[in-house]
């Protein structure tokens, strides 16, 4: 099907984009990579009055360093993320998860920011952002900026802390150096499919001891979830298959996954435990 008619704006700066959003009427949609929005508009599940296309806002694109952080522009495409040298050095968990998103053609258009704002529980990047304690830099009308932590950004199914008229500008994540091991473990059944469950793990080792652990779960509830019990069990533990297996057994604690055609809730909880064990085992270098 073809989308319903809309007015189209193509700003080239963040300020112009915010003005176009403010001037766009009641129902304005921001178009990033379009890889979720255009399908939804084609099915007429969305029929915005105005579409503000931010693909030419070049200041939103690219990855830079800022002290101990990586700053990823909202319009950096999945393809750009995978091929970026700074991401390769300090953001391997993001790269691993992004490689599992969709297929090469979708990754040429789809963006880091779009995937986070879309906030699909089965999307692969929200759990990574949560595990990394990402900070979301948001611009509002008049150009005012605010920063929202990942724990507050993901509010519900397809819902974030972004208010009407606001634009996600960039996302800050801590650099993970060579003392960190990472793994994104995704379970799905067919090519280019979304996660049934996935686990993002980052583990810092000093010798044989785990000193920090960050575990994010994909599709185990209406938002991404931190597996805090697993993290607590891992920190201070000696790295061994037994400790990792025992810690991973707590991965489903406090989760309320949905049941659908792909999996029942109890099966998802089983997957969370198995995938957490695999992800942490790999991240810890076992």
């Amino acid at each position: 099907m073809i989308p319903a008619s809309f007015a189209y704006a193509r700003p080239t700066t963040v300020d112009e984009a915010l003005q176009a959003i403010a001037a766009g009427g009641e129902d304005v949609k921001i178009l990033a990579g379009g890889q979720s929005l255009i399908p939804v508009m084609r099915l007429r599940l969305a029929a915005p009055e105005t579409v503000v296309d931010i693909t030419r806002v070049t200041e939103l694109r690219g990855v830079r360093e800022d002290g101990d952080s990586l700053v990823i522009g909202a319009m950096t495409t999945h393809h750009d993320v995978i091929t970026d040298p700074l991401i390769a050095q300090y953001g391997k968990l993001i790269a691993e998860a992004t490689e599992t998103v969709a297929d090469p053609a979708v990754r040429h258009r789809g963006t880091f920011g779009g995937a986070l704002v879309h906030a699909d529980p089965a999307g692969d990047l929200p759990a990574v952002a949560l595990a990394l304690d990402a900070e979301f830099v948001i611009a509002g009308l008049g150009g005012a900026r605010r920063t929202v932590p990942a724990t507050e950004f993901f509010v519900d199914y397809l819902t974030t802390a972004l208010a009407d008229g606001e634009l996600l500008v960039e996302v800050r994540v801590p650099k993970l150096g060579s003392d960190w091991g990472v793994r994104y473990e995704k379970f799905n059944r067919v090519a280019q499919a979304w996660s049934i469950v996935a686990v993002a793990a980052a583990v810092r080792r000093e010798g044989s001891r785990i000193t920090e652990a960050r575990i994010g779960l994909t599709n185990m509830g209406s938002t991404p979830i931190r597996a805090r019990a697993v993290e607590a069990a891992l920190v201070g533990a000696d790295v061994s298959l037994e400790t990792v297996t025992a810690a991973a057994a707590q991965a489903a604690e406090g989760t309320e996954p949905s049941s659908d055609l792909n999996a029942q809730a109890d099966y998802r909880q089983h997957l969370a435990r198995v995938l957490t064990r695999r992800a942490v085992t790999a991240a810890a270098g076992l």
């Binding site: 189209y8 084609r42 296309d53």
Partner: peptide, 21 residues
């Protein structure tokens, strides 16, 4: 993917790009 073309040298699904883009 039946609609795949190259846009500025990169593969895209041309049903998921607007002509104005």
């Amino acid at each position: 993917g039946a609609c795949t073309v190259h846009l500025d040298g990169e593969s895209v699904k041309s049903c998921t790009v607007l002509a104005v883009q």
